[in-house]
Design a protein around this nucleic acid. Structure first.
Lengths: 259, 259
DNA sequence: CGCACACTTGAGTCGGCTCAACCCTCGTGG
DNA sequence: CCACGAGGGTTGAGCCGACTCAAGTGTGCG
């Protein structure tokens, strides 16, 4: 089952206009909806999987539940990084503004993804929700404390960092060596895999991000992304549908993506 | 002082032709030359800095000293990753062969760099020495054991992974958003910074890698790299010298690199 | 000397960018 | 109910930067 834009999920979610800068601390509502860690949908795919049920209670004591509406920022480039996050629902765009005004989209965080692996003093990027999104927020300091107590967790974070490094390598190859068509195909295939990893398997691939976001992620222009998608559509590899694409020939797409 | 190609350093180093596949295990000579961890040149800049003198002894007990001649492989893509490494001297090219035959150079490891952060089952890349190179080799299993005993070390590895992730982000931006000239300038500036980090500050930047390596690293062709270097040379920003470049106007170069 | 190899330089091509117009959908207000 | 504007997406024409192909230079080495 594919999750689509769901107005229901936004009940109680603080809305901010895009132009508005995020507040000093996000408007967190503790354990809104009564979701508990051991009932968490992404528990087994996220870093939390390292913890026993007891340890999970300690973690939960630190967690704040944050709901974000579409276009709302979780944190902002250059802002103090005083927390780390675990995405449980929705999708987040991670982007970086360059000094020359251009923007690069480093990636998209999906449920199970952890934000703040490298924990620098200040955020190197901006995180904005692309759809109604739920995240667990952990204050940096107590989280660090918890991590030093639980070697399993650090292990798991480290492992996750390794995974991210691997993804980054793939992305570098994609950016440097592939044609526009391969880039787009690769992006679709990669996204499908990531959805599959968290148990969302479907022929219709949801694209919560806009064409411009994809372009900024792949190092292309919006026109080229659009052209390539239409091209893949005309070649009957995909079918462009509202809010995403239907994968008609995933095998051929993978071959095109060079995987 | 700049380290140049030094035939002296190759005495006793096993030589392999480039075409030859690396042996099952590298030809390690235990503690060749009698270098000890607490006298190690890169001790303070590498992950080992996390350890006390006592702990360092434990680490040293696990270490094997490996000397590599130019073009010799430390490990090879698809080979079993049964060890991790710490570079203490020289330079290593980390490259990945793609299924379509093209090559991407992920980066260059310099003294103080740690190889094997993400510890997958099989190496995702090939590591080859670009010059006479010295590395410390640690068998994976005992190293993992040591790491679980010493939380400091894991912490440090984790921190290092975060640093690598940051570098990967920079590289992605470079690959996707910059022109050929900016890429080359950025590469030079970045390399200078990395040398500075390990205490090698000089106006002459040593380039142990060839033009093709730089091209494969920046997502350019060898001709373009060559043209851009000549262009920077003609613009009096750099001076091309044998084995490297002299930075004539580092400030202007940094501005060009967009940093 | 002659070969190998790394690098440089030039001419022409082409993929993706720029600029511009257009389409479609949706929300809003008369 | 339709008119309208805004925003996201698509399409087309022309251009330009990096690639391709090809030749030439320089250096080290047997």
């Amino acid at each position: 089952m594919i999750k689509r834009f769901d107005p229901e999920a936004m009940v109680g979610a603080p809305m901010l206009s895009l132009s508005e800068f995020p507040p000093a601390g996000p408007k967190a509502c503790r354990h809104r909806g009564g979701g508990h860690c051991n009932e968490c949908k992404v528990r087994l795919v996220s870093v939390c999987a390292a913890l026993t049920s007891d340890e999970l209670d300690d973690l939960e004591a630190l967690s704040q539940h944050v709901s974000l509406g579409p276009r709302e920022a979780l944190f902002s480039q250059e802002g103090r990084a005083d927390a780390v996050y675990n995405v449980t629902e929705g999708a987040i765009r991670l982007s970086r503004l360059l000094s020359d005004g251009r923007r690069h989209v480093m990636g998209f965080a999906l449920p199970g993804d952890f934000l703040g692996l490298s924990m620098p003093e200040r955020h190197s990027l901006t995180a904005e929700a692309l759809m109604p999104t739920e995240v667990c927020r952990f204050e940096r300091r107590p989280f660090r404390g918890l991590v030093s107590d639980k070697p399993n967790l650090l292990d798991r974070l480290y492992e996750r960092a390794g995974y991210e490094l691997m993804l980054a390598e793939e992305q570098m190859i994609l950016l440097s060596r592939r044609t526009a068509e391969e880039k787009v195909a690769c992006f679709l295939v990669g996204l499908r895999r990531r959805y599959a990893r968290i148990g969302r398997i479907s022929v219709t691939l949801e694209l919560p991000m806009g064409r411009q976001d994809i372009a900024d992620h792949l190092g292309l222009t919006i026109e080229t992304v659009s052209r390539m998608l239409t091209h893949l559509d005309r070649a009957r590899l995909i079918l462009i549908v509202p809010g995403g694409v239907r994968l008609l020939d995933a095998d051929r797409l993978e071959r095109l993506a060079g995987i």
